[in-house]
């Protein structure tokens, strides 16, 4: 059951991912990205990671991508024109992919532990509580620092987007 679901959603995800890079109209790309996020959330659900799945939908699909779509609509972006692919470009692309694959295989081969399925976490806590515990007990300081950084970034953005700087 879990395996079939995995295959269904992972192939959907790859399909939509391909859509993001091959489709020409920006709205279609954005919608493909949203769909692939939702398939990713479904994958998380098959792993019983409800919290991450829901956060994935809430943040990525529900907030970030809506803003993307909003901006695509506002700027009225038209479909991209097809560029003619030149030979060196294709060669470069293939080389990049090859490099990535070689690296990946090296990393996987370096430690046999990576190939083994990791046993599921056995915990009596619900996953929300578990994430909260991890964040606020083991990683409290980094978490606070990230929070502060985000706050600074937000203030910076607000300042920059003001029309006139006094």
């Amino acid at each position: 059951m879990q395996l079939t679901l995995f295959w269904i959603f992972s192939s959907l995800m790859i399909l939509f991912g391909l859509g993001v890079i091959t489709l020409r109209s920006p709205v279609s790309c954005a919608m493909c990205l949203v769909s692939s996020f939702i398939s990713l959330a479904a994958l998380f659900i098959t792993l019983d990671a409800f919290f991450i799945a829901v956060i994935q939908i809430l943040v990525a699909a529900g907030a970030v991508m809506v803003l993307f779509l909003f901006i695509i609509m506002l700027l009225n972006l038209q479909a991209e024109e097809c560029r003619r692919l030149r030979f060196p470009v294709i060669l470069g692309g293939i080389a990049t992919i090859l490099c990535f694959l070689i690296l990946l295989s090296q990393v996987l081969a370096s430690n046999p532990q990576f190939l083994e399925p990791i046993p599921a976490l056995q915990s009596t806590l619900s996953d929300v509580k578990m994430i909260g515990m991890t964040l606020f007990h083991s990683f409290n300081l980094p978490f606070q620092i990230i929070g502060l950084l985000l706050l600074v970034a937000t203030v910076g953005v607000v300042l920059l987007s003001r029309r006139t700087l006094k």
Partner: peptide
């Protein structure tokens, strides 16, 4: 176990 968040997530994609 994340029912309430699920509700918020779904309502966020209803746009």
């Amino acid at each position: 176990n994340v029912g309430a968040l699920y509700v918020l997530a779904i309502s966020s994609i209803s746009v």
